Computed example of a mutant assay.
Amino acid sequence: MKSMRLGLVGLAVVLGLSACATTQSPTGRGQTLLFSATQMQQMGDASFEEMKKQQKVSSDKKLTQYVNCVANRVTAVLPDQTQRWDVVLFDSEQVNAFALPGGHIGVYSGLLKVANGPDQLATVLGHEVAHVLAQHGNEQVSRGQLTGVGMQIADAALGASGVSNRDLYMSALGLDAQVGVILPFGRAQESEADVMGLELMARAGFDPAQSVTLWQNMSKVGGSQGPELLSTHPSNSNRIAQLQQLQGQMQPLYASAKTQVKNQCVAPK
Rank of each mutant, 00 (worst) to 15 (best):
G223C: 07
D119A: 08
G197V: 04
P268K: 02
P79C: 06
G16E: 10
M43V: 03
S211M: 11
G16D: 12
V87I: 13
L121K: 01
L8N: 15
A37I: 13
V95C: 03
M201L: 11
L146G: 00
M218R: 08
G30D: 15
L198P: 04
D155V: 14
G137D: 01
K52T: 00
L133P: 01
D80I: 10
V266R: 14
G159S: 04
V95T: 08
G222I: 05
I240C: 04
N72Q: 12
S256H: 13
A160G: 13
V149D: 01
T213I: 11
D60M: 03
Q244V: 04
V9C: 15
L78D: 06
L111V: 07
A156K: 09
K2F: 15
R143Y: 13
E199H: 08
S58L: 08
V261D: 05
G162W: 07
K53Y: 06
T32F: 09
P227M: 04
L229K: 11
E139M: 14
E192L: 02
H233I: 02
Q242R: 08
A19T: 14
T123Q: 04
L158F: 09
V221N: 06
K113T: 15
L89M: 05
A209S: 13
V74P: 00
D86A: 03
I105C: 03
N165Y: 04
A46I: 06
Q39L: 07
Y108Q: 04
M201P: 02
Q152L: 08
P208M: 04
G117S: 06
A46G: 05
Q249A: 12
G10K: 09
L121Q: 01
G137E: 01
E93A: 14
K269I: 10
Y108C: 06
G103D: 04
G102A: 08
V67S: 03
S92L: 10
A97F: 00
G102F: 03
A204W: 00
G44V: 08
S36M: 08
